[in-house]
Structure formats: C-alpha cells, structure tokens
Amino acid sequence: MNVQQLEQELPPILLYAVPILVLALLIEWLIIRFHPEKAYDADDFRASLGIGIGSLIINAFMKSFILALGIFFYELVPWRMPSTWYTWVLTLVIIDFCNYLAHFTAHKQRVWWATHVTHHSSEHLNLSTAFRNSWTQHLKLVFFIPAWLTGADPVIAFSCYQLDLLHQFWIHTEVITKMPRWFEFIFVTPSHHRVHHGSNDAYLDKNFGSMFIIWDRLFGTFQEETETPKYGLTKPVDSQNVVYLNFHEWRDIWHDLRKTRSLKGAMKVLFGPPV
C-alpha cells in the first residue's frame, strides 16, 4: 500500500461530520447566548477559531507525511489483522489507549505539555474550545506507533483515529449535564471532560480519556464532577493572540534551556513536570 492508495480508500469522516459540528455549535450558541456565565465570549471564540484554522492548515500539509508514517510501521511487521468488525473494535480501543497515554504524558512532562497547553488556555468551555488544537500536537504521533504495529489495515487504523477525534468534539460543552449511568461508566462524557478542563485542585490531572473513561477508572486518574469547574490554566495566559497561545510554553522552555549548564538540567527542563 502507498500513500496515494490510502488517500483514495480512507473515508474523510471528519469532513463528512463538518455540517453536524457547525449545526451543534449553532444550537449551543442559541441555548446559552443569554446566559451571563456560559455565553460565548467573542475574543475567546475568535482565538479558538483562529487556532482551529491554523491547525487545519497544518494538518493539510502534514497529511501525506502522517499517512506515510503509518504505512511505514504497518509494513514493518509480518502479521496482518483480518478486516472484520472485531478488528475495527480492537483498533479503536488500542488507538484510544494510545491517546490516553499521550494525553497523560502531556500533563506530566513539560516538552509534551508544550504541545497541549494551547488546548487548556481558554477560561471558557464550549464546543468552540474543541478547536484549540496545538499547532505542534503532531509531535505526539510517536505515541501511536503501537497502533500502527498491530497489523491492522491503515484504512481501519486512520478511520478509527478520526472516530476517536470526533468523539472529543461533543464533550466540550456545559449544555449537556449528565448522560445515562451506564454511558457515564464506559465513555468520556461532557461531565467527565469538564473536570479535565477544570483548574480546581480536585480536578487537576484527571480524566485523560478521549473516548473511553475506563482507562481513567483503571489507572486511578478518574474524578467525578462534584463542584463547578474553574476553567483555564493554573497560571492564566492573558492573551488571545493565537501565535502566543501556541508557542509561549516553547519560548519559556527555550529560555530555561539557555540557563542550564548540564545535560541533566536540560533533561529536567524538557521532561520534568510543567511549571
């Protein structure tokens, strides 16, 4: 399989979903437009939209490279998984677990936090917040190598990745309060993700799941929503400049690296906890 063949066979699930995403955004805006605390903030929305557009442009330039990378690791292994329904299910679970690991690590090590901090920069939570995908997030592709080594067809692997990403859109809202109990136990819901975006002491570094909340329950990172979340960073970023929001942590890392005089110090700056 080559990149051109994969591009032809891969369904553009996210593209198909665009009308639904826009409609959901409009419905949410209509519901909360007169709410004094939840209504869209114009500057915040423009920043989220600007970051999202920049991310889409970067994704377009990176697409062929990412597909080629997936094919490279797929071709490395001699085994192949059959193209059946259970391969789709298993691949989706594996990709979601890779996403959990990437997300968890992004909150624990500073160099990875720099690829994610942009997403937490808003002091609001609505569907537009989902657009705040860092322009350097593709560095986290290394966490998905295990999924590409399973032998699952790249069409299945990249389709499952799109589904996992799509699930993360609707959980960025305050309009939906709670889902049915069984759903809340298995899947990541808006309630779970509000906790993740909260800067409350009880909510810090909790609920890293993308589609399945099971990982958080298994590994002790789960937190129920018990108090009103305070959104944003523990050290707020007083800016709506999309370039600054994407690169301020990289700038700070560079400044700290210039001050260090040892390899150990440099490793601490890069892989120590966010400051």
Rank of each mutant, 00 (worst) to 15 (best):
A47S: 09
V195W: 12
F65S: 14
F143T: 13
S199Y: 07
W182N: 14
Y244T: 03
A147P: 09
W85Y: 09
L125H: 06
F271W: 13
F72K: 07
V195D: 11
I213H: 06
I156L: 07
N246L: 03
F97T: 05
P274W: 09
L270F: 13
P36K: 03
L67Y: 12
F65T: 15
I171S: 07
I213L: 15
D205A: 13
A157G: 05
H103M: 10
I51V: 13
W170D: 03
S191G: 06
H120P: 03
T84G: 08
F187E: 05
A68N: 08
T226V: 14
A157V: 15
P180W: 00
S191L: 00
L204C: 04
A157Q: 05
H120N: 01
R80P: 14
Y74V: 03
Y86E: 03
K264S: 12
H248Y: 12
S134C: 09
R261I: 00
I13T: 08
R132P: 03
Y40N: 14
K38S: 05
N59P: 02
W250D: 12
K235A: 12
L30H: 05
I145R: 06
W88E: 01
N126S: 11
H248V: 03
D256E: 14
I214Q: 07
W135R: 02
S191K: 12
V142M: 15
V77W: 07
L14I: 11
A147I: 04
T226C: 12
P229G: 02
G50L: 08
H255I: 04
F247P: 07
W254Y: 15
F73I: 08
L26E: 10
K264G: 15
R258E: 02
D44A: 10
S134V: 09
G209K: 07
G265S: 10
I213T: 11
D164K: 08
D205Q: 10
A130Y: 01
L165G: 14
F185D: 10
F183M: 15
E37V: 04
N241Q: 04
D43M: 15
